[in-house]
Design a binder for these strands. Structure first.
Lengths: 337, 337
DNA sequence: GTGAAAGCGCTAACAA
DNA sequence: TTGTTAGCGCTTTCAC
């Protein structure tokens, strides 16, 4: 069966292509008689508009791209879902692109050697630095997510990581903890994310008059639960003493929880724990996890607002927006009082 | 800055569009001199091919769509990742579509009122039945995933749910368990998935001479950990006795684990547990979860093989493929011996 | 309110 | 090996 084109419908209905197009688009100034006549032809022929023709003609794709390292990480999977919902509300489809945290692939994302794939791009870099992003900057509207510094030319949305880390640490201190370890310290040169979280952690400790002990920074080479679990096991084996663990994310917290369980250390009795991201998993572990919860709904709204402005032609300097977070308290580090 | 078109490059280099196109596509019969001349023009002008023009001309989009209910469910997030990898290997981009398990949205997926969005579609229905899928006129190549029956006209890939449920149940029986409850029994009319898993469960019990006790089917209204946890709590409150829980999926198993932890019931000492899907989470809970592991890599290969055949013009009857699964044994129901 | 026709940017059959 | 040109299917001024 040959594809039915707009022109076929026009011929069949004995009208012009313009009229058919008007009907397809629910253009209001079409007489009812005309409308039903055309609609009948559409139904009879089983016409469905070809998106590629439309896109070529309009220059718009109606698609946005969301790029980050890996959908199978719970935070990103849940973030993707939030963006899907928000994009749909705005009549955009969403294309997901994964970089696996590889520099090459991140470069490919921002350099976009092919034009017209999507109308705009939301990108959370893992590897690419601000300067390189600025260089590659091409003609597709771009909004950055995450803690890495953004070039001044590019819009950027993030939560205040220093404040959030401070909040989590203060909470642990308020629970009477003094030997608070940090799980997921990076072994190589610190990323902005790490620097910010460490900074908040130190702020809170210093403010409470607690000396910062470098031994309490438990390193991991990868961001997963296994690494975190083994970091905690090593710390215990080495006789490190701690009464709280502030974890770089929920995955690390889950690993830490597991390591403590294995050794019969009670949470939060002996050791309190905080996670980060407030993924679904945080609410179903035993004990459930207190976690920093970025306001991802707001994140998506702010990011897509800015992106749509760019798509609409805004050419001004990059905007830098901070969205809210909360500390969701659960069993692993319960609310006070 | 106005967009640079193929024609602009051709003019700039003093050659024809065809020649530029040849260079862009690395066509081999191009003299080196010509190639460098054109490439220079491309670089000077900063030309990047417009995908929409190309797509309209070729009739191909180079995109496939993967549709299921919800990316934030770990199984689907991990499945998406596997499909992304396999699609990329075949030079396809992947578009994710979510239905939220809503009939309307599933209909929209299979009816595809717009043509040319993607070259093919892989779809795991949650609500739509076989007959309705068959009815919807479809000009986009389709492969179905999951346990629902597929129309004979449509390709379909799944694992053998009956066999997998049998395997899991047999494993629990081999561990000496006799009062094996099923967590996540559907309250309404049973879906194919449920029917198959129940059937495997019953097979194994009957084969071992264990009577099937309807009280051991713990119902949940939603597929999440909370529901599963509360189902298990209710069962315990009602005085139900069981020494094993076969859970409909890992999420349910995680909820069950939590409920048992709360009551101080040891796993696997008092109660053994099996999950389903073998999501990452299964390996980091405490205790870690024995789980049915569908071979998702094979699933993606088989599905995309069939899809590419359809895209290539194959019009034959629907193929029905079964892919492998394994039972991954972990602490919650350890391997024997 | 409706029609005619010129693109949108690229590909590919056909020529040279 | 390179050039010419007619589409791909739709949108959209601009007339009527």
């Amino acid at each position: 069966m040959p594809r039915v084109r707009l022109e076929d419908v026009a011929k069949h209905a004995g009208v012009s292509m313009k009229t058919v197009s008007n009907v397809v688009h629910d253009y209001e100034h079409v007489s009812d008689r005309m409308r039903t006549r055309v609609q009948t032809a559409i139904d009879e022929l089983g016409y469905r508009p070809n998106l590629m023709g439309r896109r070529l003609a309009t220059g718009r794709t109606g698609m946005l791209s969301l790029a980050f390292s890996n959908v199978s990480l719970p935070y990103f999977a849940e973030l993707a879902r939030v963006f899907y919902a928000e994009a749909e509300r705005r009549d955009y489809r969403l294309l997901l692109q994964q970089t696996d945290a590889k520099v090459q692939r991140e470069r490919a994302i921002v350099s976009a050697d092919e034009a017209g794939l999507v109308d705009g791009l939301v990108f959370q870099p893992s590897e690419l630095g601000s300067t390189e992003i600025a260089q590659h900057q091409r003609d597709v509207p771009l909004v950055l997510l995450g803690e890495e510094a953004a070039p001044i030319s590019v819009d950027h949305v993030m939560i205040d990581n220093v404040a959030a880390a401070t909040r989590a640490t203060e909470h642990l201190i308020a629970l009477g903890r003094r030997k608070i370890a940090f799980v997921g310290h990076e072994t190589g040169p610190l990323t902005k994310t790490s620097l910010q979280r460490m900074s908040g952690y130190q702020n809170a400790l210093e403010h409470a008059g607690i000396p910062v002990d470098m031994n309490l920074l438990l390193p991991t080479t990868q961001y997963d639960s296994f690494e975190a679990a083994s970091a905690v096991r090593h710390a215990l084996d080495a006789g490190l003493e701690f009464d709280a663990l502030m974890c770089r994310d929920d995955l690390a917290a889950i690993g830490a929880l597991r390591a403590l369980h294995e050794r019969g250390i009670s949470v939060p009795g002996d050791v309190a724990i905080t996670g980060w991201d407030n993924t679904h998993a945080a609410s179903v572990t035993y004990p459930s996890l207190t976690s920093i919860a970025p306001d991802t709904a707001q994140l998506a709204v702010v990011a897509l607002d800015m992106l749509e402005e760019r798509i609409g032609g805004y050419l001004g300097v990059g905007r830098h927006r901070i969205v809210d977070f909360t500390l969701v308290t659960r069993e692993s580090a319960p609310a006070i009082g």
